[in-house]
């Protein structure tokens, strides 16, 4: 048989899925053991036990200075920034993307502007944001919004333009006004895409969040990683990175489930 036609069974699939993760852990274990054998004080690849200790210290023991459980307070700080920023970006993208896609006049007005803004590297704007908006939460949230909103707007506007022309004509022959068509024909078909769009922007959003936190913050996952970097505390950094990854995976998965649950038709289309 051709390779393109060979499909793994269920058990094989699971095994294949786990293999790269297992390999990574094993490689880490070997590397760590080798380095520690050479120099017991090595900090680069701490032993599994030190990682567990670090997790215990960060997540389950109150901090001596503040009395907080650092991992959780950092997570809360980061997530609240992320949620606020993504909420704002989503709202902006939904409204702007829809009007750009639907109304030729607004498209002529805004589409080139959004395209231009989306080319500005957001991190280059970070100093300006800190100068103008101060070092507080506003600047960080703004950075994320500027970083992810233009891409979302363009994606949604494109999606609106991709709706078959026949549908919009049909809606007009059913007596729909622009407002009604926006509400009953365009919006519902855009929402599933909005969720997908949000999923794709999770990566950039985390990037901007951590960049902002690295530079100016007093809590947050990014802040902590860059703080302990000074002491070469890889035993804290590794679990934090894993935890951020896990959070992103969960958000990604949950958003997709949400889409299927709320818009069941959006999965029928693909014959899935």
């Amino acid at each position: 048989m051709r390779w393109i036609n060979l499909k793994p069974g269920r058990a094989t699939s699971v095994a294949l899925m786990l293999a790269p993760f297992a390999l990574l852990v094993i490689a880490y274990g070997i590397g760590s053991a080798a380095r520690l054998a050479e120099n017991p004080g090595d900090k680069l690849l701490p032993a599994l036990q030190s990682l567990v200790d670090a997790v215990n210290r960060m997540a389950f023991t109150p901090d001596v200075r503040t009395g907080e459980y650092l991992l959780w307070s950092d997570t809360a700080a980061s997530l609240s920034r992320l949620v606020a920023a993504l909420g704002i970006a989503t709202a902006i993208a939904l409204v702007t993307g829809m009007v750009i896609g639907m109304f030729p006049y607004i498209r002529a007005l805004l589409a080139p502007f959004v395209a231009t803004v989306s080319m500005v590297p957001p991190l280059a704007l970070l100093p300006i944001l800190f100068i103008v908006l101060g070092l507080g939460e506003t600047a960080k949230i703004t950075l994320i919004v500027i970083g992810v909103a233009p891409a979302m707007i363009r994606d949604l506007a494109l999606k609106v333009l991709e709706l078959p022309r026949e549908q919009l004509i049909k809606a007009q022959t059913l007596g729909g006004s622009s407002w009604q068509i926006a509400l009953r024909v365009v919006l519902p078909q855009i929402l599933p895409r909005l969720i997908t769009c949000l999923r794709l922007q999770l990566g950039p959003a985390w990037l901007f969040l951590i960049a902002a936190e690295a530079i100016s913050a007093d809590s947050g996952l990014g802040y902590r990683i860059f703080l302990v970097r000074r002491y070469l505390s890889m035993d804290v950094i590794f679990p934090y990175v894993a935890w951020i990854t896990l959070l992103a995976i969960i958000a990604n998965f949950a958003l997709d489930r949400l889409r299927i649950a709320v818009f069941p038709w959006s999965n029928l289309e693909r014959g899935a």
């Binding site: 026949e166 049909k170 022959t173 007596g175 009953r184 519902p188 078909q189 038709w265």
Partner: peptide
């Protein structure tokens, strides 16, 4: 406008509405 109905070869119905929702839409609007 609503005085002229149309059926195209494809894409004539709304994929996000059920059969009932599709037929109902004109009335609702």
């Amino acid at each position: 406008g609503p005085d002229r109905g149309v059926v195209f070869q494809r894409y004539s119905v709304f994929p996000h509405l059920t059969v009932l929702g599709n037929v109902l839409l004109g009335k609702v609007l």
